[in-house]
Design a protein around this nucleic acid. Structure first.
Lengths: 134, 134
DNA sequence: TGAAATTTAAACACTTTTCTTTAACATGCG
DNA sequence: CGCATGTTAAAGAAAAGTGTTTAAATTTCA
């Protein structure tokens, strides 16, 4: 109850991995199969991803405005629209076009292919001009 | 699977809460009891705590040295010992006594009472002189 | 003090996660 | 090729988490 997401077993594996041991070596050390080590390691990484995702969500709570980019939109158009949307409510976005495109690509890479948005993206806009994608 | 820790129900409650609604008001809105809203809200906050805890753990993975403070130790002695331990391995801790005490109190408040450490604290020391408590 | 707001506890059904085994598949390397 | 490394899939048992209700306790504050 008082712990984080990573189980003791997962911590054990991550520590050994950090030391450079192979999955087989760890399997021998803690008396189980290498397939099991693989599973545990992947579960650990998934938990870390979830933790990051969760804290990202906190930021979206601060958003006072939400704008949705439709699938199929050209990335540069999407960015223009975000600027326009923010301007409507007198918010100055803290990014220029280039860095905004970069942030989007980094934040939701699976939803952008080439120049186009594949799937809808919700843009959370805070009064401070900060942006989060979800 | 692709989501974070916070469930849709929990997000719903957190958003309404952020808007300033009472638990009773939310209960009426989504047709359930106020006790249930309380439970869901607390679960959400617990999940956020876990997420933070999880990412904190990542830092401990970078630690090359671990020093354990025993329960019953005077806080100032504990800090002296940490400095001494770091010095042994030629690491310069990035905090002075005062700020180190503050960090400890903030990081593991439940394990410090007044001037004394109630329960053992593991101190993770990185080569960069950064410290984490767990 | 009294009413509203919040918290806690216990119990239940349900879903998800975790760890595990076994067996097969993929990849890179000497 | 044979070998080491890592990944994937399926299946099962145990553990943990979620949303819910009902009822009681506690806190807050006008």
């Amino acid at each position: 109850m008082k712990q984080g997401l990573i189980t003791d077993r997962q911590k054990e594996v991550l520590r050994y991995r950090k030391q450079g041991l192979t999955q087989q070596q760890i399997a021998d050390l803690i008396h189980t199969s290498k397939a099991n080590i693989c599973t545990i390691e992947k579960a650990a990484l998934e938990n870390i991803r979830k933790a990051k995702d969760t804290l990202e969500f906190l930021y979206t709570l601060d958003a006072t405005h939400i704008y949705t980019i439709r699938g199929g939109t050209d990335v540069l158009d999407a960015v223009s629209n975000i600027f326009a949307e923010a301007e409507k409510v007198h918010i100055k976005v803290r990014y220029d076009t280039i860095s905004l495109v970069n942030r989007m690509r980094e934040s939701v890479p699976e939803r952008i292919r080439g120049r186009f948005v594949r799937e809808k993206i919700d843009v959370y806009i805070t009064d401070e001009g900060e942006l989060y994608f979800g």
